[in-house]
Design a protein around this nucleic acid. Sequence first.
DNA 1: TCGTTACGTGACGATATAGTTATGTAATCC
DNA 2: GGATTACATAACTATATCGTCACGTAACGA
Lengths: 118, 118
Amino acid sequence: MPAKKKSAPRKELSPLALELIAARFRALSEPMRLRLLNLLMGGEKSVGQLVEATGSSQANVSKHLSVLREAGMIAMRKEGLSSFCYIADPIVNELCEMMCSRLREEMESKVQAFDAGI
Amino acid sequence: MPAKKKSAPRKELSPLALELIAARFRALSEPMRLRLLNLLMGGEKSVGQLVEATGSSQANVSKHLSVLREAGMIAMRKEGLSSFCYIADPIVNELCEMMCSRLREEMESKVQAFDAGI
DNA sequence: TCGTTACGTGACGATATAGTTATGTAATCC
DNA sequence: GGATTACATAACTATATCGTCACGTAACGA
């Protein structure tokens, strides 16, 4: 095959792939949704329980849950009047814990720099 | 200490932590920024190179780079007239590759389900 | 059947964000 | 000094999103 113009060619992602990946990250880009996911990490919960735990409105929680569901991160199970939510994609735990620990590292290093008088 | 009301207490994240984590994910929630990061995974590049590689406007690229820089994901190095960008947080590679492979899995399983006639 | 409960959803206003255009600015060359 | 290059940034428009309010609806209980 013909030689490339220059530098490292690397794998270019297709526009579709970029959009799909961005959509997943976008689902994680709101504090309320992270809070809901964090609550669900403790096990499945009904929408009502999530409403009570967050102190937010039912409509708002329901909407955020829809976003998370469309992103494939959670799933719902109906039981009588209640809908129970649970984490459907194990990547959620990994991603959040990774981001959490990274932030902690970062902040601790800043504290150290502060303590060192820099 | 007094007994909790019920269910798993788990670690509740503070509003500040939630906002910081959300901000990081938000930086990754746009296709153009993912594209820029993907290009930077091949090594540092000048803003001009990124403009040419993406075909987007210089102003737009510059703005997205600002967002990534404020999120701590990239850093800049000036050299003459040019500004060279490079990935400053190794978590970027992990996160993107994790999300990519997860999406690939998901789509392949859907293809299999489709092939199985489900 | 009627009311209640637990959710989902459309409409709305306020805010945020992507992209463009135009302009500012620092470094380099003549 | 003056022109040019490479980039940052303010102003602006269009679109997206958050949260609320109001309403629709399916599943139960009397």
